Amino acid sequence: MTRMNLLQAVNQALDLAMARDERVVCFGEDVGHFGGVFRATSGLQDKYGKHRCFNTPLTEQGIIGFANGMAARGFKPVAEIQFADYIYPAFDQIVNETAKFRYRSGNQFDVGGLVIRTPYGGGIAGGHYHSQSPEAYFVHTAGLRVLVPRDPAQARGLLLAAIECPDPVLFFEPKRLYRAAVGEVDEGDDPLPLDRAEVVQEGSDITLLAWGAQMEVLQKAAELAGQQNISCEIIDLRSLLPWDVETVIGSVMKTGRLLVNHEAPLTGGMAGEIAATVQEHCFLHLESPIARVCGLDTPYPLALEKEYMADHLKTFEAIVRTVNF
């Protein structure tokens, strides 16, 4: 076991994958000798050469188009989009090419070796162009997998699994945890499952569900709830597409209540899909309406960032309301 932060875990996973398989290549804006804006690819160009870790022009559509081509030829490209906010110029390539490549050929060819890494989320005073959480756009797209790690161990294990996955993967990394999340990481080669949620805390009164950086928010809210004798079960969804319906349903059947927390705006967010699915399966077991604690339906504000965020206090208040309904 080695203690490291989330950024180091991402770097180590890339290093290990590149060492194991010469088809793995990393590229994006400034990812070469500079190591990217967050230094996630530091040292990889020096170790593996400019033909396997290199800079691209500042064109997100071009980065993903190039990645699609490489993956179609049997490579395993790990393409970095510098901020999730900048992924929109590549939207057509991702949803109309990457996601549909296998389907349109009747499984004769695919881009299954492709991973798109991108830092998402707020909490770093980045304003409206460096703080967005755009996962909901992509969970609507059949043919993709969408993953979000919460800590260094999850980042390493899920990224290794993503690179080996036969489907194209969007890998959203919570940027505010890059250096803030530190933990013990098993340096074995075992990847983590790509389609299963994890129950990180058992409880009996309410199920709390989130992913990525919001898991820390849930844990703080659960501590406050515990002081009110409210027992919280906490689940990290990890995989947003596909998502682990069975684990979530099993938990809600036990607790009778559900709160979903995400940083993205409320309207059209992943929480709505989860709530609809849960009420379909658990309607007669629910003791209260399903709660959603999410970002606001506004552009991400700089001056009012704290008011915008779905923090532990908003979550705690929602827990109390739900349990006392």
Results as ranks from 00 to 15, higher is better:
Glu223Asp: 11
Arg257Gly: 01
Ile234Met: 03
Glu216Ile: 01
Arg196His: 10
Val200Phe: 04
Cys282Gln: 01
Glu216Trp: 14
Ser251Leu: 03
Leu240Met: 11
Lys254Ile: 01
Val200Ser: 05
Ala180Ser: 12
Gly295Thr: 07
Leu296Tyr: 09
Glu202Asp: 15
Val217Tyr: 03
Leu208Cys: 06
Gly250Asn: 13
Arg196Val: 00
Arg238Lys: 15
Glu233Arg: 15
Ile249Tyr: 06
Cys232Phe: 05
Glu184Gly: 03
Ala222Val: 08
Ile249Cys: 12
Gly268His: 03
Leu208Ser: 02
Asp186Asn: 14
Leu224Phe: 12
Glu273Phe: 08
Ile206Gly: 01
Gly269Thr: 09
Leu284Met: 13
Ala291Gly: 01
Pro265Tyr: 07
Leu194Ala: 07
Gln279His: 08
Ile230Arg: 11
Gln214Lys: 12
Arg292Lys: 11
Glu280Phe: 09
Leu218Phe: 03
Asp236Ser: 11
Ser231Pro: 11
Arg179Val: 00
Thr277Asp: 05
Leu296Phe: 12
Ile249Lys: 12
Pro242Asp: 10
Pro191Asn: 08
Val185Trp: 07
Glu216Ser: 12
Gln201Glu: 13
Asp186Lys: 12
Leu284Ile: 08
Asp205Leu: 02
Val200Pro: 00
Gly250Met: 09
Thr277Glu: 14
Arg292Ser: 12
Gly272Thr: 14
Ala197Ser: 15
Ala275Gln: 03
Trp211Arg: 00
Asp195Cys: 09
Asp195Glu: 12
Glu184Val: 15
Ile230Asn: 09
Gln219Glu: 15
Leu224His: 04
Glu233His: 05
Ser239Trp: 01
Pro289Asp: 08
Leu296Gln: 13
Asn261Phe: 00
Asp297Thr: 08
Ile230Met: 11
Ile235Cys: 07
Gly203Ile: 03
Ala197Glu: 01
Asp244His: 04
Ile290Trp: 01
Pro242Met: 12
Asn229Tyr: 13
Glu187Gly: 02
Val278Asn: 02
Asp186Cys: 11
Gly188Ser: 15
Ile249Trp: 00
Leu240Lys: 08
Gly269His: 09
Val199Ile: 15
